[in-house]
């Protein structure tokens, strides 16, 4: 009995070392350098560090894990192919990658394929505002505290721009508020989030 416990502890210890070795946190600068050298280690580390966050966002936009897998794949291939066009003086690597992923996912939800699919399910584009807000509230249940602190008025604007691909003008029309209010709510929401920057 004792032996099996110590074995168990030891295997946990070993696997912890292993995972520290292989999913090590790497700084953006180091990663960028590896990717500029076109190294396979670079793409592998990029995947380890960013796949979960990008996959989460894509899944939330397309609402299907199967499709999110394809889009994540396209996203990484595009990141790899277009890496020479990333300019670190203009912004963070994460922002650049996120926008590639979001564009691909939003292109998909605007495509025929998605519209055909959602006709069979519920038509997300025709949902009423109250349906969307209640949906977003349910989404909140699983979320950590950070997002619960967001003012709901700010959060819904960020959500429909970020996850539904609305432009600011579309968001204003949709929520029936002035464009200026949309802009300031996006800004205020992101300012609220500053407290939680890690």
């Amino acid at each position: 009995m004792k032996k099996s416990i110590s074995l168990f502890l030891m295997s946990r210890f070993v696997s912890k070392i292993y995972s520290n070795l292989y999913s090590k946190k790497i700084s953006e600068e180091e990663l960028i350098k590896l990717l500029q050298e076109n190294s396979e280690e670079g793409i592998s580390l990029l995947y380890d560090n960013y796949s979960a966050i990008l996959y989460g966002i894509i899944t939330k936009i397309v609402r299907s894990e199967n499709i999110a897998e394809d889009i994540l794949q396209d996203t990484f291939v595009k990141i790899w192919k277009n890496f020479s066009s990333y300019d670190s003086s203009k912004g963070r690597l994460f922002t650049w990658m996120l926008n590639i992923a979001r564009n691909k996912a939003i292109d998909y939800i605007r495509s025929k394929e998605f519209k055909n699919r959602s006709l069979n399910e519920s038509d997300i584009n025709n949902k009423s505002l109250s349906e969307i807000s209640s949906e977003m509230n349910t989404d909140q249940i699983g979320l950590s505290n950070t997002l619960k602190f967001l003012n709901p008025k700010n959060k819904i604007v960020i959500d429909i721009i970020y996850f539904k691909g609305y432009t600011q003008v579309e968001a204003a029309k949709y929520l029936n508020i002035p464009l200026g209010t949309v802009k300031s709510r996006v800004r205020n929401g992101l300012i609220e989030l500053r407290k939680y920057i890690k």
């Binding site: 994460f94 997002l147 992101l190």
Partner: peptide, 9 residues
């Protein structure tokens, strides 16, 4: 802040 928002998902 956008990165920390994103990492919540």
């Amino acid at each position: 802040s956008l990165e920390s928002f994103s990492s919540e998902h």
